[in-house]
């Protein structure tokens, strides 16, 4: 039983990391209806920029992070100007393909500037079991994971406050509800989109720091984005709490499945289990756990 809980908690904590990536998707989808495939590339780009600034230019960590933040904001604004603005009113799938193009561009750009070696990112948090929990219950729970979860919680709380209590947040929600209505009451659509992309860039930076510190900053980070997709399906594309809950469900079920079902079928089921779980889930609730109910009229 103790082993079960250990796996469960490890799964939940890794789910938090998935949720972080999913959060970036949700923000952009909510505000602009764009399914941003480039989120994974943004995570990679952000992490690589932090490490690059630190190693190549000797920035200390506390300076590298705001500098990268600035880069991500500029990237968000540039994306809005160059990619999204000319494609307003196009098909959803066209926008989706454009973000895939952006993915290729960012991957190439990041590696062109910083090289394609695997780099180590040290945030000063050690990946060791917490002694307090270990001595009390005998469970091994990583300190790093817990701190990551706390950071994630702070981030989500900030975003929720930003969305619900500030003027910018109100504009964001208005745009998310109805582009045209928002425009007609005088909300500058382009500014709002630029802000959303910048915020998504910030979320990507946080995700990149945590994932990079965990697994090393490498090209494989871009695949993390794919794991965020089943999280989105379960949570719903338009819900921030959904992204968190979906992340937890996926993280926990994937680890449990790998440990308890994996050995019977040859292992490695972590790769597809979340997708099949999401698929089954969709058959029951097509709009996800917290997504807006889709009402279709003729």
């Amino acid at each position: 039983m103790q082993f079960f809980f250990e796996v469960l908690i490890a799964g939940l904590l890794s789910g938090v990391m998935y949720a972080l990536v999913a959060l970036g998707f949700v923000l952009i989808f909510k505000a602009s209806g764009v399914f941003n495939f480039a989120q994974g590339a943004m995570v990679f780009f952000a992490a690589l920029t932090v490490v690059g600034l630190k190693e190549e230019f000797g920035f200390p960590l506390w300076a590298a992070i705001p500098a990268t933040m600035l880069v991500m904001v500029l990237l968000g604004i540039a994306t809005e100007r160059i990619v999204l603005r000319p494609l307003v009113n196009q098909h959803d799938i066209t926008l989706f393909m454009a973000t895939i193009g952006l993915t290729f561009f960012l991957e190439g750009f990041a590696q062109l500037v910083w090289g394609s070696n695997v780099r180590k990112l040290d945030l000063g948090i050690e990946d060791v079991p917490i002694e307090f929990v270990m001595s009390r219950t005998g469970m091994l729970i990583s300190q790093f994971d817990v701190i990551a979860a706390i950071i994630c919680a702070i981030l989500v709380a900030t975003l929720v406050i930003l969305f619900n209590k500030t003027k910018v947040g109100r504009a964001l929600r208005a745009v998310a509800d109805d582009h045209q209505a928002a425009l007609s009451v005088g909300i500058p659509l382009q500014h709002v989109w630029a802000i959303v992309w910048a915020v998504a860039g910030f979320v990507a930076l946080v995700a990149g720091l945590l994932w990079g510190a965990r697994n090393g900053v490498q090209f494989a980070l871009t695949f993390v984005a794919l794991k965020a997709l089943p999280v989105l399906i379960i949570g719903g594309f338009t819900s921030i709490p959904g992204a968190i809950v979906g992340g937890l469900i996926i993280g926990a079920s994937e680890k449990l499945a790998e440990v308890y079902i994996g050995p019977h079928v040859g292992g490695g089921i972590e790769g597809w289990f979340p997708y099949v779980l999401a698929l089954v889930f969709l058959l029951v609730r097509p709009e996800g756990l917290f997504g807006e109910k889709i009402i279709r009229r003729i």
Binding site: V83, L87, A98, L102, T103, F105, L106, E107, G108, L112
Partner: peptide, 17 residues
């Protein structure tokens, strides 16, 4: 190889626009 990747991505965006 990285320049190729970039140009490929940029061309796709360009074509879509």
């Amino acid at each position: 190889s990285n320049v190729e990747l970039m140009v490929f991505g940029a061309l796709i965006i360009f074509f879509l626009i």
